[in-house]
Amino acid sequence: MSRFFNVKENLSTSFKKGAFFCLLFLSGCSSVSPWERGILAKSEMSLETAPLQNSLRTHQYGSREAASGGGQSGGGGCGCY
């Protein structure tokens, strides 16, 4: 927890680390202060929009489409029909 009392120092060192990853996305990223992350914390901004439904949909697509399996590294049974 002590790191939070050195917010300025951490921001600068982390920024260097983050800059590398930002380059991966050519749009370039501005720093978003922790107190500006209210919107990002909303449930609708979660990468998985509806995890429950998605697991059923993914299973149905997997039973009907050739491009199944790839994309996750979870493993699982067939249940093919």
Binding site: L24, F25, E36, I39, L40, M45, G71, Q72, S73
Partner: peptide, 28 residues
């Protein structure tokens, strides 16, 4: 037998945008 691996990066672009890129590979 299946072996699978994945690697992804998630990035906040600004206070209302985020993006994720990932790759995965499966050998069966």
């Amino acid at each position: 037998q299946d072996w699978s691996g994945s690697l992804g990066v998630t990035q906040v672009l600004n206070k209302s945008t985020l993006v994720e890129g990932s790759v995965s590979y499966t050998a069966s």
